[in-house]
Nucleic acid binder design. Structure first.
Lengths: 211, 211, 211, 211
DNA sequence: GATGAATGAGGCTTCATTCAT
DNA sequence: GATGAATGAAGCCTCATTCAT
């Protein structure tokens, strides 16, 4: 299954992408953690370097700029996310099963890329204004198409309620899932699958007890 | 009903709190809009001044600092919010009616203080680390107590489902409501009350069609 | 006795010098006090206004600028000082009596213009670089001429010791007197004349007990 | 002889105290020169940087702030001063010899730290109000104790005159010495020891010729 | 691969000053 | 005479980035 819009961050200048990719990954993970905790703008390159046990200037051996670290973090996350989503969407499931699979896949992503997701939540809106981050908007559009489409199929198939504003429902489901990144801690009580199950139960059947 | 923990931002130095509170309000509204759109850290004082039609330095006739603007914006919002919440909580309603009233009140708050709510969502976590913004944590705690308590009452009264993790449910309901601030535009299609109604319908009864 | 180089600060612009001179004096005294306490540069116009019970802008009804306040304060002091000094120097006293009279006159000045003297001590050096304050250098030169001349006369007349570097002696006597402004508080234990007497006794006869 | 209250300026944040202390010293010397010439407040960070041949921001690689430069300059001076003073005071000399040794030591200090002494003279009073510079007051107190004590010992031992106000005498001697920093230029006509000798001669025996 | 030192742009803030009311 | 509000220049400081070693 090929990822249609797999985004590869542009590496305009000289930087040794050659040098050990594991080190890059480590550094990016560190950076993501700090970005998520303090916000991208509030994070200084020095803080990242501190967390990585090196000096600020040394990061520039590995990366072009602070922005390109952010870029790589977000791209990597979105690429993985779409790999999962595309698989689900191509599987030809019914609307309810599709929603269930997407939600489960989402919580798995949150589990794997918590920091990236948190960053995405906080920064994506004002980043998408910059050309370099247009792919965020693209992803957003594709995302909306997938979810809205599935919901509409579901309404048509009388699987989902017809009396609700469909865009409101979309936002409801979407937000409901992704905000979880703001409090989720990997290795906690519940597995991503278990959380997904409970979320789905709430979203689909509500929290009120049926008579 | 008096607000127990009404927070008044400290005004350490000189600035005229006396003179024309309308101007202050205007400026704070402008600032809030910019903070919400671009993020607090990414917002330069110059941008606020531009939006207000004055020079950056002129803001300091009205406010101590950029931070104190943020402080006032958040305090004002939280004070109003708690005025509403406290009224609801003191009304002696049943758990389901309490949840309904709180959600409705929340959407009204979002309608009135959209920018402040958006800022709160984005910045509250890392702000609460600073002593000046400890009241954010305090509010958070009080908030959790109110919602969790109501949910527990509801479970005990067999109004809400007992088979769900209660904290998960709390987060679900809480986030579901507040993220709305990120896309809500006052004066749009639906009134806050209408949005509240639909949200409640989804949260309480789910989006799946009942057989 | 006319003061040869009586300095009148230039009042370049519009300011109402007309309006009650007592108010001006009051304000200048207030300003001098603050300048002396905090240093000219560290003194903001606002601090002066606070001390005077008005708003910063209001001072500009009375004065051209912060600098012109300083100018008036220093000129007024120097004019009075030279009125006294010139009288002494014109009296045709012997060298020792001249020194005694100058020292006494100096302590009287310190008593009357403590703040101005303190300002003069601290700021005079770097102020004299500016054209506007050249009269400070002029005064300095005239001052040195008067004292050095008297000392030389005294050495020639075998009233003062001949074995000392005369410039060192000049600085010794001069500083000895004027630094007093840094700790002198009017209305204290000793009258200016009493302090002058003791200083003179030390300067002339030393602090060691004679055999 | 260990210095009891050796003051080490607090270095709250990050700045490399580790790396090349020579560079720091160079820069501090430059800064001290500018502070002394123009006054601390009138000295902009840019002026210091200009004098050091770098850009203003670059100073912050070496120092936390303009204030911390001042702090280090004054601490370094006071520490050295007290090293010398403590040695003298511990030597068990008679009162006259102690005064002579202290004065000589002081002129040596002025010779070595002219700029620091000049800064100290001008700024110490209003600096000591700030907590960070409390050690200036502490030093002042210790200083007064040393000098006043010695003078009192001398009066008791009939080495110094008994007919003078002792505090006045203290201020006389103290100021007499330290103001010298305002005109002293290292490498001039007289060595510090020679100046000390002449000053002592004046202070002890007066400038009047004995019959 | 990393360090130490510096650059330069830009951010927040202060403050003398102006001016309409 | 004084106030309230604003201006504009300048000051201190931070930070992403560069580069010689």
């Amino acid at each position: 299954m090929s990822v249609e819009n797999g985004h590869v961050p542009t590496n305009k200048k000289k930087t040794q992408v050659t040098a050990s990719p594991e080190r890059r990954r480590e550094l990016l993970d560190t950076a993501a953690e700090v970005f998520a905790a303090q916000g991208y703008n509030a994070t200084t390159v020095r803080k990242i370097a501190d967390a990585a046990g090196m000096l600020a200037g040394s990061l520039y051996y590995h990366f072009d700029s602070k922005e390109s670290m952010l870029d790589e973090i977000l791209s990597a996350f979105l690429n993985e996310l779409w790999e999962g989503y595309d698989t689900v969407l191509a599987a030809g499931l019914g609307p309810r099963e599709t929603i269930e699979a997407l939600v489960t896949e989402s919580f798995r992503e949150i589990d794997r890329h918590r920091a990236a997701v948190a960053i995405y939540q906080k920064e994506s809106r004002h980043l998408s204004a910059q050309p370099r981050f247009h792919y965020l908007s693209d992803s957003q559009v594709k995302f909306e198409k997938a979810w809205l489409g599935t919901l509409e199929r579901g309404v048509a198939a009388k699987v989902f309620r017809a009396d609700l504003d469909i865009r409101l429902t979309y936002r409801f489901v979407r937000d409901t899932v992704w905000v979880a990144a703001s409090w989720y801690r990997p290795g906690g009580q519940h597995s991503p699958e278990e959380i997904a199950r409970q979320y789905l139960s709430m979203v689909l059947d509500g929290i009120a007890l049926r008579p």
